[in-house]
Amino acid sequence: MKKVYCIGELLIDFVAENQGSDLAKANVFTKKAGGAPANVACAIAKLGGLSKFIGCVGQDQFGSFLLAILKDNHVDISLAQRSKYFTTIAFVSIAEDGERDFVFSRGADRKLKYDSSIKNSFQDNMVHFGAATALLGGDLEAAYGRYFFDALTQNSFISFDPNFRGDLWKGEEDTFIKKCMPFVQKAHLCKFSLEEARLLSGKTDLEECCAVLHEIGTQVITITLGGEGTLLSTKKTKHTIPSIPVNPVDTTGAGDAFIGCLLYQIANLHDPIEILKDTGPLIDMVKKANKAGALTTTNFGAIPSLPNLKQLNATE
């Protein structure tokens, strides 16, 4: 089994309780662990995979809480760093349909320092780049770029999820697109939401979105479509793969559960890059990953809702 290195933010989600979708009216919040790359690392580990988290939290009680959560979920945190800056916080509200509204207060996640000793560990393993805060400048973006170069030179299987957050990029969408392009160009696998696929391709029709994104360079595209399932696209074939019916209460972490489950399955292959030569098995993999994403929406909080292998197989 290959190791999957997940690079990016780990943060505190303060989730508004019983307040609808308006953060301005919320006055009761519950503390939960969050951050897309950290969620992916937990999704992989809860299924029995080998995941390592690379990110930074504060030298405060929130930082200790977050690292303990990852460790409890069997994620290797030996590469995590700590900073004198406060742990990053996100305030989240959840509407009746499970959709989310965010306000970020950035702190330690941006202080991740590049560690050159990690480079050789990437050799023939897998590296997942989650970009929610990683392209916002600072030490994190610099380290992110250098780890990307390391992954390219060490024969790593590279996965990219842009994790676009509109509140973080208002008026700067073109900058976000430009910064994503090298990852879209070189990644073996890209996971997009419908919004992200349209934003990065400049198209609205899904066929045209995929054509543009493949032309840029990525070899395998998954576009998550909520209850409609996932579009799996390669340069030769396209399949819309249905999910299982659920009653969603919180969509937080659903996309992370999806890509985590997909990466877990690919990591079990002798040579993950071989999946690019024969993408037939990806259809079954995406079908299972859809289930992981759907199950995650049936409870509140991302990490506690991520399914383990027994729960995932029980839906078959």
Score class of each variant (00 low, 15 high):
F86T: 15
F258I: 07
G260N: 09
H188Y: 12
I7C: 00
G166K: 14
S78D: 03
G301H: 04
L10I: 04
R146N: 05
I44D: 04
I77K: 11
F62K: 15
T222S: 15
T240L: 06
T296M: 10
C6V: 08
A197S: 08
E195Q: 14
L231I: 12
L276A: 00
T222W: 03
A108F: 14
N120L: 08
T298H: 00
I118Q: 02
A68R: 13
K186L: 11
I89L: 13
S156D: 04
D256V: 08
S64M: 12
N155F: 00
L112C: 11
N299F: 03
I69H: 05
S64Y: 08
M285G: 09
Y5I: 09
I259D: 03
A302G: 00
D124E: 14
G171F: 05
I44E: 00
T224W: 00
P182L: 01
D76W: 05
L200Q: 14
A16T: 04
K71H: 11
L231E: 00
V184A: 13
A43T: 02
S21A: 14
G229Q: 11
G171R: 14
C6G: 10
A68S: 13
T218E: 12
C210V: 01
G202V: 04
I275P: 02
Q123L: 14
I54L: 07
R198S: 03
F91H: 13
K3N: 02
A45Y: 04
N299R: 13
G49T: 04
A257T: 12
F91Y: 05
V246A: 03
G58P: 06
H74E: 09
M1G: 01
N268Y: 06
F14V: 11
L152H: 07
D150L: 06
K236T: 09
F91D: 07
I244L: 00
P182V: 04
T30I: 10
L140P: 00
P242C: 10
P281G: 06
S78P: 05
K236N: 13
G260Q: 01
Y144N: 14
A187N: 08
S21Q: 14
